[in-house]
Design a protein around this nucleic acid. Structure first.
Lengths: 221, 221
DNA sequence: TAGTGGTCTAGACCACGAC
DNA sequence: TCGTGGTCTAGACCACTAT
């Protein structure tokens, strides 16, 4: 039996593609962000297809950022690329995240500082150990790295270099960001120098592609 | 039977993750770009796993840009993130591509100009039709849009805004860039103003994440 | 304990590409 | 014709979540 909301077995289009279209239409018409979709086995019954088909359709939709699958709970509708944030260039990570309204927490691991912008970005910062004695012991939980460097060491960022590319989330980064591995991510590699020209900071930041945007103003030379 | 290059059935790691590691090691050690990997059914026999496992591993590797699956032919090794290029900010597309040593060809489609940086980037440019009478008829095959705008209309870019995010390649863009759909891509949305403040150009550029990098120098305000 | 998504098996038929 | 990857079925067991 085939109807307007079912799978057409005579179509040349694969079942999972048909199902994707059905689900997208359903989500856009009837679901809000955070809504729980029917379970995979229920979709099997509803659309009379095997779980392989349902999982391929939902897997594609997850890769496209429309839904999020959570083991043991279900499949949720996510925001649809609407919640972009802003990162001003020439700002430190903490400042730019705060400016965008995000809470920033950080953990200090030896001389490695790892910031976690609430399931948004992942960051690895490397600082020359010689320049910053005692930095590893400092409480950075709710302070900017730049604030600490300025107040404790008198070093302020003056210029820097940023390299931006797109990459697929590694499984480790995906875990930190609570996003599917392989999902597109913005990767920003950064070097910062003080006014004296001392190269004092290097970091690599990973941003979820579906929730982040990097914006800058440019002028002619 | 388990050996150094096989699947460990006692491991907590899923078979497809183990197989991914095995294949990545094999590719990095023994394969060159363009090489044909063993078929899926041969991998099933070699590693004593079902085709589901092999397909999940190869599907992940394709999403990560390491291999390319071709129906009826097989699975090929692709280039591995080595060929990054540079795009200077505050430059037009043509200039930045040329600076990076790329050949730029373009097609004029009505008032739409589409540049194709030899399987590297895809670009859509929108210009206000009122400001540029006759632009659609001009030969832009090997000229910069900015060159034409300056020589024919006396308009020069002075300032602009860039928004950069990461996205998955749509199947259409993937076709143009000869890359797998879903692969991470850098998306740059750009607005350019003349010295008089006239907003005269808007474009969206899609760059393959595995071959492109966007670099900029920043200074403290 | 019951339900969910994650992983896996052992098959099957298909369209496509090379021969 | 034969081998390839693409799609699909009908099961199974698992870890995780909630109650």
């Amino acid at each position: 039996m085939t109807n307007a909301t079912g799978i057409d077995v005579r179509s040349f289009e694969p079942y999972y593609e048909q199902l994707k279209r059905i689900l997208i239409r359903d989500i856009e018409a009837n679901r809000a962000e955070g809504d729980l979709l029917p379970s995979e086995s229920e979709m099997c019954r509803t659309y009379a297809v095997s779980r392989t088909v349902v999982r391929q359709a939902l897997g594609d939709l997850e890769n496209e950022g429309l839904v999020l699958k959570v083991k043991g709970k279900g499949t949720y509708v996510t925001g649809r690329k609407l919640n972009t944030s802003f990162v001003q260039h020439s700002l430190g990570f903490y400042e730019s995240m705060q400016k965008a309204g995000h809470v920033v927490r950080s953990k200090t691991l030896a001389l490695r500082t790892e910031h976690c912008g609430v399931s948004m970005a992942k960051l690895r910062t490397v600082l020359p150990a010689r320049l910053f004695p005692g930095l590893a012991d400092m409480d950075m939980t709710d302070k900017s790295l730049y604030q600490v460097l300025a107040s404790e060491y008198g070093i302020r960022p003056a210029s820097g270099h940023r390299a931006i590319d797109a990459t697929a989330l590694s499984s480790e980064d995906a875990h930190h960001l609570r996003a599917p591995a392989g999902q597109p991510a913005l990767r920003i590699e950064s070097i910062t120098r003080s006014a004296e020209g001392v190269l004092f900071e290097y970091y690599v930041a990973i941003y979820r592609g579906d929730t982040f945007k990097f914006e800058l103003e440019v002028t002619s030379p």
